[in-house]
Write a protein that binds this DNA or RNA. Structure first.
Length: 301
DNA sequence: GTTATTTGACCTGG
DNA sequence: CCAGGTCAAATAAC
């Protein structure tokens, strides 16, 4: 009984993912000019189709589209216990609510001085999550926090960095300011339900959800040693390279899904237990969400 | 000696 | 009960 719905869900997902992957390949070919005639489908059409595939996949999960922003989606009606009511502050963590931002970047350096205060193995994550607070917490009371989660990548590591709170300390390195207040951004958001596309004037591409931002940065490794690794590139010249690169990433993400889920095999433990539905769907959701992000990057070009 | 990191325990929210 | 966020003692680095 559960098996049928699981199988149907798999079929839907696989079908949509294959469709999305095919569109990605076509798009990649068009951008690389491997085909003289790209056919009747414009890049915009292809990306739309990819987005539609994601939407379909996510709706298969009954997944609220365009709301994933990492753990920051925990922004629910939060009732806080009495501050100080706890005898010991240990473990008394506040859910990130007010001011959290998520960046996907290929370096965990951001120019700030951070002090690591914890590390945790995260379920379904290959790499542990590291917890940092601002070095100037003690002397200046800076409350900025960040979490660094290395994502599995192909050769070049990528990191999902969650910033919680803003720096109130003075020790900022101006040219490495890497995140913007929400009000400073024109949000670039793909709504996978209605395919609404908005363009950001910024070179940063961003997905937002309420008060949380997901942004993507590119990092020119050739400049990494100089320290100015976040120097903004001129938007015009980097576009093509960035687009190709991101589409390649999108393609790799598909490869990862198809490899990881072993579509021809029996890895149904992802989906087997209905009682474990949320955790078993997590891997798929997470990977598809990564695809969304890749796709969003493409839209920004 | 001071400061930063590691790591297991503790704590909370879901 | 579990997953994840934080604390703080132990340890390492300088």
């Amino acid at each position: 009984m559960e098996g049928n719905s699981t199988t149907n869900m798999r079929k839907t997902l696989i079908g949509e993912l294959i469709r999305g992957r095919d569109c990605t390949e076509k798009l990649q070919n068009q951008l690389l000019r491997r085909v003289v005639d790209g056919g009747p489908e414009s890049p915009e059409d292809l990306v739309m189709k990819i987005a539609a595939s994601f939407s379909e996949c996510l709706s298969t999960f009954s997944y609220p589209v365009s709301t994933y922003v990492g753990s920051a989606c925990l922004d629910k009606t939060k009732k806080k216990p009495e501050p100080g009511a706890v005898k010991d502050r240990r473990g008394c963590y506040k859910r990130k609510t007010e001011d959290s931002r998520v960046e996907i970047t290929d370096t965990y350096e951001d120019g700030y001085a951070w002090r690591k205060y914890g590390q945790k193995e995260i379920l379904h994550a290959k790499f542990p999550r590291c917890y940092y607070r601002c070095t100037h917490k003690d002397d200046q009371g800076c409350k900025a926090l960040r979490q660094v989660q290395q994502l599995e990548e192909y050769g070049s590591a990528k990191y999902r960095i969650t910033y919680i709170g803003s720096h109130t300390c003075q020790n900022m390195n101006e040219n490495t300011q890497t995140f913007l207040a929400p009000e400073d951004h024109s949000f670039s958001l793909i709504n996978f339900k209605d395919s609404g596309i908005k363009h950001s004037p910024s070179s940063l591409s961003t997905i937002t959800n309420g008060d949380t931002i997901v942004s993507f940065k590119q990092h020119d490794d050739s400049n990494a040693q100089g320290g100015n690794y976040l120097a903004p590139s001129s938007q015009g010249t980097s576009s093509n390279y960035g687009c190709e690169d991101m589409i390649t990433n999108l393609d790799l993400s598909y490869t990862d899904i198809f490899k990881d889920d072993d579509l021809n095999g029996e890895r149904d433990n992802y989906h087997a237990s209905s009682s474990q539905a949320t955790s078993s769907n997590y891997v798929w959701e997470d990977m598809i969400t990564d695809l969304e992000r890749s796709c969003d990057d493409i839209f920004q070009i």
